[in-house]
Nucleic acid binder design. Structure first.
Length: 309
DNA sequence: CGTGTTTGACCTGCGC
DNA sequence: GCGCAGGTCAAACACG
């Protein structure tokens, strides 16, 4: 498909650029990008993505909460992908648990329907119509348009590693050559049972140092407990600087995940929580106190704060 | 033996 | 209808 790039940027994804994002927060992580020396040169560069942000997407959010809310609203209103009842049930819930249950139910229902289709196809198999058998192999009716009812989130990361570790366990289920690109595209699925999250990983043909990762769907389980990464309280600016150098390879990537969760799991924040604009961190703390403290630590580092969560 | 990767075949949507 | 390209399946294989 010649519009792969366009697809990546226009449908239902929100390109998140933490570099410019953090730059807005507190002068940003300048120096971090360059300081993260090879072989783990993790960074994203907004200049590589001139048209990554949708035209009606606010290019720069003053606060985290605004950014997240705007992004979520953009997602709900902007993508070409229809927001189905299934996806809205999952993504509009502020309580991840409830959303997960909905996802589970929908997933089970969908699978049950597919099973039923397969059962029904057995009768067809008795005949000699191989064509029909093939067409219905995936449980879809012939001519039935495949629906993308899962939210997508894409971002670019500068890395020499194709598959960046993000804490979740992924199983590779396919790899395809990409047209006009010397680099293949890899397809991953979350290995957790009943979790249908998929991940596409490809390397930009324009800049081979850029890895384009596209997530599809929402995890129906909690973030793995054995999170590796930052775990030390930082008391001084010097320590903060040191921490930036000591960030593990998956640091930014993990942050992308958290940002993704923030956008997809808590879109109606602006409706349910009326907090002042400068309460972004408190907001985060309330919502993701247990699961994404890692993210808050990250923000606190770049804002030069000494507090911890 | 369980888990993950590789890879060719197959399915699907779309443009011509 | 046909061809192309993206996406998925599943058997074979590798590895600890």
């Amino acid at each position: 498909m010649s519009g792969e790039k366009a697809e990546l940027f226009h449908y239902d994804s929100v390109l998140f650029d933490p570099f410019s994002f953090f730059s807005h927060l507190s002068g940003g992580p300048q120096g971090f990008v360059d300081s993260a020396a090879p072989p783990f040169n993790y960074s994203t560069t907004s200049s590589i993505l001139p048209e990554t942000l949708h035209s009606d997407h606010e290019p720069a959010a003053a606060t985290l909460s605004h950014h997240a809310i705007n992004s979520a609203n953009y997602y709900k209103a902007g993508g070409t992908m229809p927001v189905t009842a299934n996806s809205s049930a999952c993504s509009s819930s502020t309580e991840a648990g409830a959303g997960d249950q909905d996802c589970d139910r929908n997933e089970q229902k969908e699978r049950q329907e597919q099973e039923e289709n397969r059962e029904g196809n057995k009768d067809d198999d008795d005949g000699d119509d191989d064509k029909v058998k093939k067409l219905t192999k995936l449980g879809r009716k012939k001519g039935e348009k495949r629906q993308r009812d899962q939210p997508r989130f894409a971002f670019m990361t500068k890395s020499q590693i194709d598959h960046l570790e993000d804490g979740y366990r992924w199983r590779k289920y396919g790899q395809k050559a990409v047209k006009n690109s010397p680099f293949p595209r890899s397809y991953y699925r979350c290995t957790t049972q009943k979790c249908s999250v998929k991940k596409r990983v490809e390397r930009s043909y324009q800049d081979p140092s850029i890895v384009i990762t596209t997530y599809e769907g929402q995890h129906t389980h909690h973030y793995p407990a054995n999170v590796r990464g930052s775990s030390h309280l930082l008391a001084s600016h010097q320590q903060q600087q040191q921490q930036q150098f000591m960030m593990p390879p998956n640091f930014l990537h993990r942050h992308h995940h958290l940002q993704y969760q923030l956008q997809t799991l808590a879109p109606p924040l602006d409706q349910q929580l009326h907090l002042p604009a400068d309460c972004d961190l408190l907001l985060l703390q309330d919502i993701y106190k247990n699961s994404v403290s890692f993210c808050i630590k990250y923000f606190s580092i770049f804002r030069g704060w000494d507090w911890w969560v």
